[in-house]
Amino acid sequence: MSVARVNVVYKGNEQVISEVRTVKEILEKLGINPNSVIVTVEDELVAEDYVLKNGDKVKIIDVISGG
């Protein structure tokens, strides 16, 4: 499994993240609890073990609502 450089959108902010292999590694790098988000890659829902490719567009969607 080789490392990838991907574009990540989370809470309206876009950033490039390098040296990651899976979605799980992105969440770990950003300190996000997997129970609190769903993740899409190229607009498809993916599980945390999804293997990333260079240039993938990753979107992290917060699912916690309050009030």
Binding site: N35, S36, V37, I38, T40, L45, I61, D62, V63, I64, S65, G66, G67
Partner: peptide, 30 residues
């Protein structure tokens, strides 16, 4: 779980409000 309802809504293409209520930011429930 909240993750399940979000995943289901995404898969069924349910167009929901993703923004949180502006007054709930510091809600203790969160």
């Amino acid at each position: 779980t909240e993750k399940e309802t979000a995943a289901y809504s995404f898969l069924k293409k349910i167009d929901y409000v993703q923004d949180e209520c502006p007054y709930s930011e510091n809600a203790s429930s969160i």
